[in-house]
Design a protein around this nucleic acid. Structure first.
Lengths: 208, 208
DNA sequence: CATCAAAGCATAACAATGCCATGTATTGTC
DNA sequence: GACAATACATGGCATTGTTATGCTTTGATG
């Protein structure tokens, strides 16, 4: 072997693609490499083509999402944390709608499927902690409840980002999560309080 | 005026596009008109271009969805009906995944936005009937609860169709709807029974 | 019924796209 | 220091959506 790929170039292209996505500029093979000094063939050596680039961009989206969820952290109130994770998920999607769209596009062939699982795992952990603290019933299926929470977050994010629902519809998450967590065994008033505390749609970092 | 467009050609192209979508054949301007006898210009006279065609296909998707929901009908148990509407929605998406993907793609500029509202209206009506029958509390926001039900259906459909969740995940709808309707005032056991009765993922008609 | 203008439609050319074949330059290995 | 494998630049290829240019059709008008 004689010449090695430069990981910086790879990262640059991914970042640039995500940036052009946020800027709503059309991301074509030629426009992507324009001004970067690298030639069009770089996309083929690093990603095998445009579809490979999109795969990498999807991957990057999940990586950034995982980072956003990781930043939520844990408190003594796992139900609040669960709502906070949902809020972070939705806020991330809202701040980067085009990247979010690409993430769930064209099947689901990621380079590293574990990145998507990491998203779910943060929720599973919070549910497990809620069970340990007695907030949720012991025979709650943690993975199942986490998936259901994900469904709510993704459903709202998708319907808002794609247009059918206005941004205010994100507020529906509060009664929905309350109903879900109450069914899981939490006391209704307590669940509502925790969720309201956790559901803060603050400004998520815009990836560009 | 001298020459009038033939609505049959328009319908043919839309149907053919939907069919090629289901068959997973690439829908290009030339492949679309190949063998139909019409020339490529027809796409421009009828739809103004490919993006107009996709708009029409989206519209058609919502029309067919509305028909599927309309076929559900009403029984004496509105909660069962609500679950049946959700099941029909998900079954339609599952039977026509590519059409469903197109429906929620590229913004939400439909020719007739009312078609999407009709989807929601069926749910609103069922919620209203549930309130009238005393199954749901009188101060339940019908439009809100309908939107929340839609969010669950769309969230599951989207996550399954795009790959992250397996088809079995549709089953999550049952506990989710149960939680939601219980929070709306229905008795838990009764809600569960109605939902299990209504949630039948029978074979939806495949549009091709 | 004849006329005519406007709309539909066919053909072909256009720019732009993703992709790839060919040749050159680079660099780690022996 | 020579070699070979890899990155990379150039340019061409087929295909895409779009549109310019006429030709054909046809319905309203007299």
């Amino acid at each position: 072997m004689v010449r090695t790929k430069d990981p910086a170039v790879r990262a640059l292209l991914i970042r640039r693609a995500a940036g052009m996505l946020s800027a709503r500029e059309p991301v074509t093979l030629r426009s992507l490499v324009a001004g970067t000094g690298v030639s069009t063939m770089a996309v083929y050596t690093y990603f095998g083509g445009m579809s490979g680039l999109w795969r990498a961009v999807r991957q990057e989206g999940f990586t950034r999402l995982a980072a956003a969820l990781d930043a939520v952290g844990e408190t003594a109130d796992p139900v609040r944390d669960l709502a906070a994770l949902g809020a972070a998920y939705v806020a991330n999607a809202k701040a980067n709608p085009d990247l979010y769209r690409v993430m769930f596009d064209a099947g689901f062939d990621l380079e590293d499927p574990a990145a998507a699982d990491a998203t779910l795992q943060a929720l599973v952990d919070a549910v497990t902690r809620a069970k340990a603290r007695g907030r949720f019933s012991a025979h709650v299926d943690a993975a199942g409840l986490a998936t259901q929470s994900w469904t709510i977050g993704h459903g709202l994010a998708s319907l808002v980002i794609h247009g059918p629902l206005p941004a205010e519809a994100f507020g529906h998450a509060i009664p929905m999560l309350t109903a879900l967590f109450t069914a899981a065994g939490d006391e209704p008033a307590r669940a509502r309080r925790s969720i309201r505390k956790g559901w803060v749609l603050e400004h998520a970092p815009r990836h560009d």
